[in-house]
Design a protein around this nucleic acid. Sequence first.
DNA 1: CTGAAAGCGCTAACAC
DNA 2: GTGTTAGCGCTTTCAG
Lengths: 343, 343
Amino acid sequence: MKSTQAAQRPSIVEIARHAGVSPSTVSRVFNDPDRVQEATRETVLRVCSEFGYRPNASARTLRTQRSQVLGVVLPTLENPVFSECLQGIASTTAPRGYAIMPVTTQYVVEAEGNAIEDLQAFGVDGLILVVSDAASSEALRRLKNRSIPYVLVYNRHDSHPCVSVAGDAAMHDVVFGLLERGHKRIAMVCGRLHASDRAQQRYAGFVEAMAHADLTPYPLIEVPFIETAIQEIAAVLQRNDHPTALVCSNDLIAIRAMRAARQSRLRVPEDVSITGFDGVKLGEDLTPQLSTVAQPNAEMGMSAARWLINSIAQQRVPNAADSISLPYRIRWAESCSQAPPVQ
Amino acid sequence: MKSTQAAQRPSIVEIARHAGVSPSTVSRVFNDPDRVQEATRETVLRVCSEFGYRPNASARTLRTQRSQVLGVVLPTLENPVFSECLQGIASTTAPRGYAIMPVTTQYVVEAEGNAIEDLQAFGVDGLILVVSDAASSEALRRLKNRSIPYVLVYNRHDSHPCVSVAGDAAMHDVVFGLLERGHKRIAMVCGRLHASDRAQQRYAGFVEAMAHADLTPYPLIEVPFIETAIQEIAAVLQRNDHPTALVCSNDLIAIRAMRAARQSRLRVPEDVSITGFDGVKLGEDLTPQLSTVAQPNAEMGMSAARWLINSIAQQRVPNAADSISLPYRIRWAESCSQAPPVQ
DNA sequence: CTGAAAGCGCTAACAC
DNA sequence: GTGTTAGCGCTTTCAG
């Protein structure tokens, strides 16, 4: 390593001096350009680009009390649902002059509270978050009592501003689509149910739909660890009376379910149909193409970011009553077909 | 929306007043706790937690000239390679008290320069970046002349500090593995070659290995747009003398190549073997499991973050000569097999 | 249309 | 071991 040179970024006073104006004028050039004479403005701008001047963000933040940074709290970037969503957030914040600060919680509830604290200490102007369970979140309860604007994504809860998709209704539709295709032996597969209110909600939709159709679902297949997920699912599929359809609480699990089926010498979809949930982009390129509840992941992020930024601009906090429910689309694809004839 | 309450965060002077000490003492409690008497420290800490005090980051940054924020510039979060890497970065920065600010460039070269400028204006202490082409990057050339520490990930170039993997050697090994399996008709598939020095490097390794084996490769299959990728690959596979092996410049393309093969009624791997590059986690759960050059994506991010943070701590900039080449591992999996017998 | 001056909240000499 | 003071770079009244 070589040691760093000085090469300090110039301050507003140096620019002012070189341009023969006062610091206030330079400041105005950036914040209220119309209020400075064109000639003056051009001189200042020239000097700025000459010195590569960019206003110092912390000084401005300190003065204005606005950082132009949004904090983002999400479980993990390893699930494409969340990286797609973060990409959506990034693409709407950047052109509006906001930066983002993501923090991942790895589905650990206490990490959520810490993330919020840390982000607030960093002075973010607002927060976009995906929590494990909005209803029981202590961190969220505290957040609600602060004045900092925030929006939840994916979670849905009456007392918080949310951008979400009706997971229960979607799952209901999935089950009915399967019923139409002649399936009766349907099982649901999910991760740790208590770790995600989305999964719970989807499960509720599943149970409700099955009851509605007077069908007894297989016992829920809970696969807490991805390492063993495939084996656990395969174990169920290898039983004689195995389900003819596996409804998964997310796409990642569905992909593993497909693998479990192949390992169990079952063809997808001829022997077993499989559905996912989330609509990650990759699902469309798989063979068989994954049937899933396609959520507009990027749009959810964009929508949350827009809402938050607008709220901040109006000095308000997003109101729970204005929560947004985005439409889902069920993508029936190659991983689903008619139920096989009864043996 | 309801309007925000005041509920201002307390400042250090209020805490000082309530604790009956001076602001400096409060400051010391946070920055040099040993230099303040235990009793005093405890009082201060009590008052702090009582008021929910956290030092204001912009004030501290302004004063110390260190923001504890790292900028991250990468092409997109939609490719799991980069989101896995970012997750790696996030997991090493967070416990060390650094926040990250990611910006995506969508593979647009000019966006890289802008991202760097913006991030510097936000006052980041250092930069981790993945650029399109390190050799030709004007933005990188400028960056090198500044005193801000930075590390490149995935890119490799002699005059920049890089954390990377030997893409050419890896590709060389892949080709040789294919040769050992009896393949002779081997084609490479890549995205826009000029948009990525990684792809170029991998292609170079491919060409070199083929030449070394006295084999004429198929013409490079360049698939500029993902929308048409599958059809373009299928077109090649439908020729009578189609390749028996498709070597892809990344995993996302390989997944599409698998789909193209199925659409062309070719079995993978019986009729055509397919390899990817990157080692995205999902590849292991596909059926057939994707053969690929597994890069330690998260570790690459971690390694870059550690290097950068250490450099910052020592008031130095990472030196190109200390660049790190991480080992790759070729994962031979179900998507590859012996070449089919000649017809 | 422009300048002077105060102060955002914090840290780091420097005193005591 | 603790307090006093100055100042980081900027914006924003308030004068002119």
